[in-house]
Nucleic acid binder design. Structure first.
Lengths: 134, 134
DNA sequence: CTCCGTGCAAATACTTTGCAAAGCG
DNA sequence: CGCTTTGCAAAGTATTTGCACGGAG
């Protein structure tokens, strides 16, 4: 069930665009960002590739923020902070979070746990300033 | 800026539908569930009310699973398990999870943290059985 | 009577998909 | 040349919204 995969300059560019930013972009952002250099790039291609990268584990999904899926090129498990005002997503190094998970969960619920996601919600520094004049 | 609010039988029914289940329903589910008793209920009304409840803090959003927002009538902070195969969402009592959050996060990043969400991902017991014949 | 709440249908917003043409090996 | 990848546009899904009417106070 392995899939043969040809080289594609566009695919490489898409993956690279995500890997080289920390803003946790949307499909649209990737499209807009690459458009100048790849004038004939189409949004469908971006979606197709993102979805494949996600499947292959090359990138992960942060989840849906304001109706748009946000991706992350950093596949090492880490924590996110999501601003409820502007929707920006920022990484929180694990040193700040310690999660103790009891292994009994799987036993108790007869489930298989693959991963754990932690996300903080609140206001980012920019929005804090904006909402708190002084 | 307070909003005047009249009584509405339908609104009450919608809130009640969510409060009385643990399946973390979608808007569509609420609609389908109430339809028999409220034949002239419309999906738009369900969406409008859910969004208002969420704003008022009467319910919370678990996030988007397979493109659909999932709601939770239990507003006390707690943890969720989301099945990556069938999308079911189940509650995990906090006794199983202990999250230590360093207050320095806010300091360090100049952000305001309102809440923390923890979610587990994996396979639920039903899907486990299905995928693991023996 | 005066607003609030709703049905209905149209409009949005994001994402997926079919198909024929272009690209890689 | 055979199979993969893409552009384009159409289709699909979930959610939001405008408007006129029915309901609560």
């Amino acid at each position: 069930m392995e899939r043969k995969q040809n080289y594609s300059r566009k695919r490489e560019a898409i993956l690279n665009a995500i890997k080289s930013t920390t803003i946790h972009p949307t499909a649209e952002w990737v499209y807009q960002t690459l458009k100048p250099d790849y004038p004939d790039l189409s949004l469908g291609t971006v979606y197709r590739n993102l979805s494949q990268f996600k499947n292959d584990g090359l990138i992960i999904s942060v989840g849906t923020v304001n109706g748009q899926e946000r991706f992350d090129g950093n596949t090492k498990p880490h924590t996110h902070f999501i601003c409820s005002s502007c929707g920006s997503v920022i990484d929180i190094p694990d040193e700040f979070v310690s999660l103790k998970t009891n292994d009994d969960i799987a036993q108790k619920y007869h489930i298989l746990v693959d991963s754990v996601d932690v996300q903080f919600h609140g206001l980012c520094s920019q929005c804090l300033q904006r909402h708190t004049p002084l």
